[in-house]
Simulated scan of single mutants.
Amino acid sequence: MSVLSVDSLPRRRAPLHRPLLYFAAANAVLAVVAVIGMLVDDRVVAGSTAWFKPAKFAISFVLYCIALAWLMSLRPKASRLMGWMATVIVVAGVIEQLIIVGQVVRGMRSHFNMTTVFDGVLWVIMGSTIIVLFLATMVIAVQLSVIRIGDAAITWSIRLGLAITLVGLALGNLMPGRESGVDDIVGAHTVGAPDGTPGMPLTGWSTTAGDLRIPHFFGMHALQAVPLFAALLVLLVPRIPILRVLRVRVGLVVTVAAGYAAALALVTWQALRGQPLIHPDQTTLTAAAAILTGVVAGALISVATAIGTRKVVTA
């Protein structure tokens, strides 16, 4: 029987990628500035306070960059290719944030805006940086997935988390080109209503229609959620002895990742049907219940694999 080993959580050997950390720190500062902007600037852009979008993007970049830097540091040694790709992500992110903040200063919307030649050029640049960011993340995902990092549970949490993140990033492509109902605006994130409808606190996600920002956000942050779940299992070993069994932890990681992917599919389907997240219909609730049942069943099966063994050997 496979049990917890000293290599379950790998010793950090590769250095943290400094540009990612610097960019995360810069976005943390930007988030504070944007929040202050929301308090003192009463302008409205595309139905939201002008500084709301920079704040959301800043927080998202903080989470994304810290998680990516941490995962890259778990390799036995640094990869030059991964370092270059991470730097590319930083450059793309800087360009995107400069355009978003610059458009806020001008009082113009950044995404999907083709109202003038200048605005159109900025939107094309943003669209290009998004593609570059996706491709660079994909290269890093492949590099992290072809090697073993820690034990099988940690390794699979990284592989599955990154795979779901790539799907979440790709779901952003559902927004450009959607009918906005506004002249010279070539995309929309709301389904079933114009952008700018009433939104949820903190997130701004629509409370009256479907919102494609939800699956985009939920999917891309699997990068943090799934590996952190695997790390949490290791930390809980002293309190829950059954978690010392490797196949139990692997089973739980796979189950949670599958549940996360299924939930991502559900919120995407819900948004495309024009249904707000907080007002699910019976069909959505039934699907959610089926996903929850599947996760619970998977967890029970994972734990059952260790029941009946005579003893659990510690590392």
Rank of each mutant, 00 (worst) to 15 (best):
V29E: 05
A58T: 01
G107N: 00
V40D: 09
G37E: 00
Q97F: 09
V90M: 09
F57C: 06
C65W: 03
M38K: 00
Y64S: 06
G47F: 03
M85R: 06
K53P: 09
V105Y: 08
G107Q: 08
V91A: 15
S60I: 02
L98S: 14
S60Y: 08
K53F: 11
A78M: 02
V35W: 14
M82Y: 06
V105L: 15
L71P: 01
L68P: 10
A92T: 01
M85P: 04
R43L: 08
V45P: 08
S73K: 02
S79A: 06
G83D: 09
E96Y: 10
V104W: 00
A92N: 08
V104Q: 04
S73C: 09
F57I: 10
V104F: 06
V91S: 07
L71C: 06
L68D: 06
I99F: 04
K77E: 13
I66L: 15
V35Y: 14
V44W: 11
T49K: 15
G102W: 02
A58R: 04
M38E: 13
R75F: 02
W51C: 02
M108I: 12
G93Q: 09
A28E: 07
M72D: 04
A58K: 11
A50Y: 06
L74P: 10
F57Y: 13
M108G: 09
V91T: 07
A78F: 03
F52S: 12
A31F: 14
A78K: 12
R75S: 10
A67C: 14
F52H: 14
I66C: 13
A50Q: 06
L68E: 03
